[in-house]
Design a protein around this nucleic acid. Structure first.
Lengths: 282, 282
DNA sequence: TTGCTCCTCACGTCACGTGAGGTGGC
DNA sequence: TTGCTCCTCACGTCACGTGAGGTGGC
């Protein structure tokens, strides 16, 4: 029979750990002196402790271990807990591997460019949102920008400020230079019944119609600010990131303007979030 | 410019997180209303937040992130921090993989035997200890047991109780049935100068000599209790464990008796810890 | 006035490590 | 008597989540 100091030396654990396990009822000493409060452990308890340590080493919590050491537990439940833990481990292993790839791509980026870069790609999910927009094919990039400007103006003048969430452009085509098939409109914080008309001299005008922007689970996003024509830089960055981190594009790109653009005449700098639905590459 | 609620929706993070980052100075809102305490964030701050989230995703702590976002940091230090984190990740990846192997071997064990088993193997390290012992070749297993008994008696009668730590047997041969080359003695909690003599009729007697049991970094250990002749069961268990978990034997085995054995005549049950120095298998 | 959003505490988490301050045993 | 070992609080950890209780703005 050992005092806590000897026992902790034999077992190579701290006395604090033994007192803690006592306090939570995980490993009670064989005997406690009522006078002094001294804890006494038997040689056989080293086996109990070793079982605890072995299970802890598998990554189980002390609660789970206590459950597994309970006399009334049956084997099927033990097997179930281990199988669950195994699944968690496999999950976390693949996440760690992804993290490692991310960090490696950051490191090569630093080697090549000498800094952390201008933009950061972040994975998010997006909920479904009511969307008031208009879809059309725009001959040139400039035509599309003109309509963005017109929609921004229409939304600002014809909708109450509280109703608008964000000006958003949804691509229905790949990234091309002409004949762009786009949906341009605003997401709403709440549904509205007002009809909103867009007037524009040199681009398709008409009426915005209400639909829904679908929810998306896995979105690679990136925020950029600058003039409209610098968009391709950010797209390039996103492409590099996806390749380095094992994703592929899996849906239509969206651009969400965080500032309502073109509010100050002559200044066309804007901040927007580019969103790409992605899936794991094969 | 956004209130915390809108900003948190755009960024897909909780308001609490934003308040927390404000409180630790990691991401201060662009403006705080002195009257109401309301926090206001700019569109550009989404980029700062995204950088933070991207770095957090790499597994860096918020302290490290704050350091990396500091203006006064140079690129070499950033690279150093990432390289360090990369090394940590690789380390933890291999540990998780080991955990996964462990848990798989547990699961197959449950399939085969229907329970968690009798013994648990635990990895430890051992410090160097003063050792008072005698080395000899014993024709049979029984001869060795007789000397263990004699050494136990000699230690109990000729040494003060406080000086003895554990009765220990060190193997200098593989696990064989005859001509066992063993060192039998006691580890000491403090050095002693007394000469200790072993008297035994049917086994090598003589004088115990003082030496040092070397420290060992990686020890696979297992505690068993039972009669001496059941040792091979535990050895078999250890062998299976090592194979399943990717270790090989890397040194001489030791057995440490936790109870001084043979104290009660006729009862030869004992609790001992088997210790195998191991290394990762190739 | 009624919701809605925002605010500031403050506790809880998980498995102990690390003192602080005090007492029994040789 | 002097060390040594043991004891019981109690705070700190890390990055927030989750109420509690109260206030500004439309």
């Amino acid at each position: 029979v050992f005092r806590i100091g000897e026992f902790s030396q034999i077992a190579r654990v701290s006395g604090r750990l033994l007192r803690y396990y006592d306090s939570i009822g995980l490993l009670r000493p064989q005997h406690i002196d009522q006078q002094t409060g001294y804890r006494y452990y038997s040689a056989g308890q080293l086996q109990q402790l070793n079982r605890i340590l072995a299970l802890k080493d598998l990554g189980l919590t002390l609660d789970q271990i206590a459950r597994m050491l309970d006399d009334k537990i049956d084997v099927a439940e033990i097997r179930g807990m281990l199988a669950l833990k195994k699944a968690e481990l496999e999950q976390s292993l693949s996440e760690e591997a992804a993290r490692l790839r991310h960090i490696e791509s950051r490191l090569t980026q630093i080697e090549e460019r000498g800094n952390l870069g201008d933009y950061d790609v972040v994975m998010k999910s997006a909920p479904a949102l009511p969307f008031l927009g208009i879809r059309a094919v725009y001959p040139t990039f400039g035509d599309a920008v003109a309509t963005v400007r017109a929609v921004a103006t229409a939304a600002r003048t014809q909708l109450s400020a509280g109703a608008i969430a964000n000006l958003t452009v949804v691509a229905h085509c790949d990234y091309v230079d002409e004949d762009l098939d786009l949906e341009i409109g605003v997401t709403l914080s709440r549904a509205v019944n007002r009809k909103v008309r867009v007037a524009a001299s040199d681009s398709p005008g008409g009426e915005l119609t209400l639909s829904e922007l679908p929810a998306i689970e896995r979105l690679a996003t990136l925020v950029r600010s600058g003039p409209p024509e610098e968009g391709h830089l950010a797209f390039g960055k996103l492409g590099i990131w996806m390749e380095a981190n094992g994703y592929r594009i899996d849906g239509r790109c969206r651009e969400m303007f965080l500032d309502l653009p073109f509010q100050i005449p002559g200044q066309d700098t804007m901040t927007l979030e580019i969103q790409f639905p992605v899936a794991k590459a094969a």
